[in-house]
Amino acid sequence: MDLLRLQQLLRGQGESINGCDLSVEDAIDFVQSNFSECSYCLVRDWTLLELAPCGEGHDALRSRGLEPVLVYARNVVLDSRARFNPGDWVRSTFQLRYEDQGLFFTRNTLYVLLGAGTRQRITLSDLLSLS
């Protein structure tokens, strides 16, 4: 990843989009009431990373019911399974589905995207450098 791309990612530059407008407490109540079967992770300072077309990779993801989109968040607020500490950064696995109120589902976790965030395109090589 070149320095400019890394800087854009870390600063959350990109197309602005809205996430969940609930307080942390209300977001927890909402998730526990409506998605009690899900592990969840509340995050701030987030970016939806859309993987640039890379040929067969997109087809392989979609054949498994996934979209080539991930969440990169610079601030974990709360992780229901304590995999991440508050203030940690996190990169999700690929998107299973997205709901307009800032709910990003992967196969294992519901990410609640608190507040405003951004959307950026990322190449496969840039994505691999975030590991």
Rank of each mutant, 00 (worst) to 15 (best):
D88V: 09
R107D: 06
D100R: 15
L128K: 11
G115R: 06
D29A: 15
I122T: 11
F105M: 06
A60W: 06
F105L: 02
S36E: 13
A27I: 13
A60K: 05
D79M: 03
L42Q: 08
G55N: 14
L103P: 04
R97V: 14
Y98A: 07
F84K: 01
R44Q: 15
R62A: 11
S63N: 08
L9V: 11
R121T: 09
F105K: 04
L113Y: 01
S36W: 09
N34T: 14
T106A: 05
V77C: 12
L114N: 01
L4N: 07
R74Y: 13
S33I: 01
A60H: 03
A82H: 11
L113F: 08
L51R: 03
L114R: 05
S63C: 08
R97K: 15
G57H: 13
L22Q: 04
L6C: 09
R91W: 05
A82C: 13
L110C: 01
G117F: 03
G14V: 04
N85S: 14
Q120V: 03
R5V: 04
L49A: 05
Q13Y: 06
D45S: 15
P53T: 10
L42E: 11
G115E: 00
A60N: 11
M1S: 15
V112S: 07
R11T: 14
A60D: 09
Y98L: 08
P86R: 07
T123G: 06
Q32D: 09
V43K: 08
D26R: 09
D26S: 09
S39W: 06
G117I: 04
L78P: 02
R11C: 12
S39P: 07
A73R: 06
E50A: 03
D126H: 11
G102A: 00
S129C: 02
D29E: 14
R74S: 11
V69C: 10
Q95H: 07
A27R: 07
A73Y: 08
W89N: 09
E37Y: 10
R107I: 10
R64H: 10
T106I: 01
T106E: 01
T109Q: 09
V71Q: 08
S23G: 12
G19T: 02
V77R: 13
H58Q: 13
L78G: 06
Y72M: 02
D29G: 01
R91F: 10
P68H: 05
V112P: 03
R5I: 04
Y111F: 15
S16Y: 03
Y72K: 00
T106D: 02
A82E: 14
L113R: 02
L51N: 01
S16E: 13
V77T: 11
L49R: 02
I122W: 09
T123M: 05
E67N: 11
W89Q: 10
R119I: 06
R97Q: 15
R74M: 12
G65W: 00
A116Y: 02
R74V: 10
I17L: 08
L113P: 08
R11L: 15
L51W: 01
G12V: 13
D79V: 00
L10P: 00
L114E: 04
C38W: 03
L9D: 00
D21W: 06
P53E: 12
Q101K: 03
A52P: 07
L114F: 04
F94T: 09
